[in-house]
Design a protein around this nucleic acid. Structure first.
Length: 604
RNA sequence: CGGGGUGUAGCGCAGCUUGGUAGCGCGUCUCGUUCGGGACGAGAAGGUCGGAGGUUCGAAUCCUCUCACCCCGACCA
């Protein structure tokens, strides 16, 4: 139980000019957070209470799922990152500094390395596996452009867990823990009162294979996710598959190939306008190359998508069977590519090329059967390009492309290689189409594999006395971001509306007239009653006008407001109102208030 | 890292073009009247105008350098 006059809740009528999103505006105005520097915030008492409640839920579910809490240093010697090259991969995101002895260190952006080191030093038998350890700690990532308050700060609070296994499958295997974490995360976010989606995701710079993201559904979210309403399939845009799409190269050309001079037109929009077409009437040909050229056939991979679509590197990788990256511009020019003006014909004229075409880039929609494309010479584009007439190579027969199928031609493949879009066919439910939604990522679980254990030479002897690299998983939750996401998801024009499980207090007693003896007596009795039943109570005992108190009550968003004043006492008790309800609440007899509050809290 | 912008009282802003010794609203403090949805009146406190250098009799204002912060893009938990 706290009294407003004795704690620190500096509410403000105006938000700082740079606050744009509701979570940033309200958390600041309601006295939860205060900016200290770019992307760095104070957590004031109200915020700390919310964070603690989220952390408690996290701890209960993590412990319940067999994980053990620990804590590693915030500061990590830079050598640990060199082992995995993440000092380079993270680049400037890694906040580095040098101590008085000239030793380089970093503020941990996440702690795979240091935890792997820790386990390596303490686990050397398969009998000690599996193990799953976690911590809740401040992380630091030196974002170039922090924004949106707590949603993308530089310093943030994160729960990160790391599991270690001898095998992927079976009892004690990675998948078992991964599944346990999956359901623990579902429990955590459900208990936090969040509306969320679970989506399939690429692994990102952290490395590894399978992963899922937990996204709070929210229109202001920074991430786009694709969902199939029929099957429940959901994935982030980078990962999202599309359903079967038909393709055919066999359209009859209605016009001849013609070359146009298109100097100094960087964007595809500008070129399309100049040629009298739209980006959807053009082909975009991206020159890519294998990451490890020695281990695969072709030197170059040309990915062709429609002009208004985006090539997806991961999908190209899956289609060709080896990892690819954007082609190095210098060596691509040396090989003969007119970067910026490449057409699919370069795949035929330049040796060692593999051509991969997205179904939507085969036969154009509408009349004409031809595309606008690059001319394979600087400052020129062609119109009237027709695959069968103008490519000069054998093309695959018409058919369909589904996520698990790649159609092979001699030197031409057709495959899903672009980012999914709203309206695309669902990969899981024939006839349904994908929808795009926005979300805020609050949790992410990865199957890491052996990337870190191999880098740190962390292996154990198995039953057959064979040395085996330990298999890892890692599981993160943005704790401070979860707090902000709650506000993004649940607020109105007047302020925050906390879900009860994470609210800083369950009930706010608004003393209309704190100097009134009878009010104070009733208030103390009700507060004691509630506290003894485990309800967190904040008493607004400030000598303020009622209007100010009600405005502040709405701002800070405590789920239940109990108003006590001479008028309510006259009517026999106190007014009880939910934050999410408008107007006046109901007057409840003083002795019944705690029962009433308890009932409201239990009914959500 | 590209493009744009802003630094003046705790918060929001004006003043800068055309140099003359700093102002408004909110908040804070005192007194009085008010008292269930951000009251009213009277009074008060609070600023090396981001920093350094320069021009000038005189700089918040003009010039140079610097630092910080923000927005869009790229990137990203």
């Amino acid at each position: 139980m706290h009294r407003w006059s004795r704690t620190l809740i500096p509410t403000a009528r105006d938000a700082p000019a740079d606050a744009e999103l509701p979570s940033h505006i309200f958390l600041t105005r309601a006295g939860y957070i205060r900016k200290v520097g770019s992307g760095v915030y104070d957590y004031l008492p109200l915020a700390k209470r919310v964070l603690s409640k989220i952390e408690t839920i996290v701890r209960e579910e993590m412990d319940g799922a067999g994980a053990s809490e620990m804590l590693v240093p915030h500061i990590v010697p830079i050598e640990l990152y060199k082992g995995t090259k993440r000092d380079e991969d993270y680049g400037d995101l890694l906040m580095r500094f040098t101590d008085r002895h000239g030793r380089d260190a970093a503020l941990g952006p996440t702690h795979e390395e240091i935890v792997t080191e820790m386990l390596k030093g303490s686990v050397n038998s398969y009998k000690q596996l599996p193990v799953n350890v976690y911590q809740i700690q401040t992380k630091f990532r030196d974002e170039f452009r922090p924004r949106a308050g707590l949603l993308r700060g530089r310093e943030f609070i994160m729960k990160d867990a790391y599991s270690f296994h001898l095998a992927v499958e079976g009892e004690g295997g990675l998948n078992e823990t991964y599944d346990a974490m999956y359901s623990a995360y579902e429990n955590i976010f459900r208990r936090c009162g969040l509306d969320f989606s679970i989506v399939e995701a690429e692994a990102g710079p952290i490395g590894g294979s399978a992963s899922h993201e937990f996204m709070v559904n929210c229109a202001t979210g920074e991430d786009t996710i694709m969902v199939c309403p029929a099957s429940g399939y959901a994935a982030n845009v980078e990962k999202c598959e599309t359903g079967e799409r038909a393709y055919s190269f066999a359209s009859a050309p209605a016009r001849d190939l013609a070359t146009h001079h298109t100097p100094k037109m960087p964007g595809i929009d500008g070129v399309a306008e100049h040629l009298g077409t739209t980006p959807a009437g053009m082909l975009k040909t991206i020159v890519m190359q294998p990451v490890e050229p020695e281990e695969c056939g072709p030197k170059w991979v040309l990915a062709v998508v429609r002009g208004d679509h985006d090539v997806n590197e991961g999908k190209v990788r899956d289609a060709v069977g080896f990892a690819v990256e954007m082609g190095d511009e210098k060596s691509a020019r040396e090989a003969g590519f007119s970067i910026g003006y490449v057409s699919p014909r370069s795949a035929i004229s330049i040796p060692d090329c593999l051509l991969v075409v997205d179904p939507d880039a085969t036969s154009p929609e509408g009349e004409g059967g031809t595309w606008a494309t690059g001319s394979d010479k600087p400052d020129h584009h062609d119109t009237g390009f027709n695959w069968t007439r103008d490519l000069g190579a054998e093309l695959p027969e018409p058919g369909t492309v589904s996520p698990d199928k790649t159609v092979l031609g001699d030197s031409v493949k057709v495959a899903d290689i672009r980012n999914a879009l709203a309206g695309d066919p669902s990969p899981r439910s024939p006839g349904a189409t994908l929808e795009a939604k926005r979300g805020i990522e609050v949790g992410h679980i990865f199957k890491l594999g052996t990337k870190y254990s191999e880098a740190f030479d962390f292996s154990v002897l198995d039953k057959d006395q064979k040395k085996q690299a330990v298999i890892m998983g890692c599981y993160g939750i943005g704790v401070s971001r979860t707090m902000a996401a709650c506000v993004e998801m649940s607020h109105d024009d007047n302020g925050i509306i906390w879900p009860a499980p994470v609210a800083p207090y369950h009930a706010l007693i608004c003393l209309v007239k704190p100097e009134d003896e009878a009010s104070r007596t009733a208030c103390d009795q009700i507060a004691d009653d509630l506290s003894s039943r485990g309800v967190d109570v904040l008493i607004d005992d400030r000598k303020e006008r009622p209007g100010v108190k009600f405005k502040d009550a709405d701002l800070i968003g405590i789920p239940i407001r109990i108003t006590i004043g001479p008028k309510t006492l006259e009517k026999g008790g106190a007014e009880v109102k939910r934050r999410r309800e408008e107007g006046f609440g109901e007057v409840v007899e003083s002795g019944d208030v705690s029962d009433r509050v308890f009932a409201l809290l239990s009914s959500r």
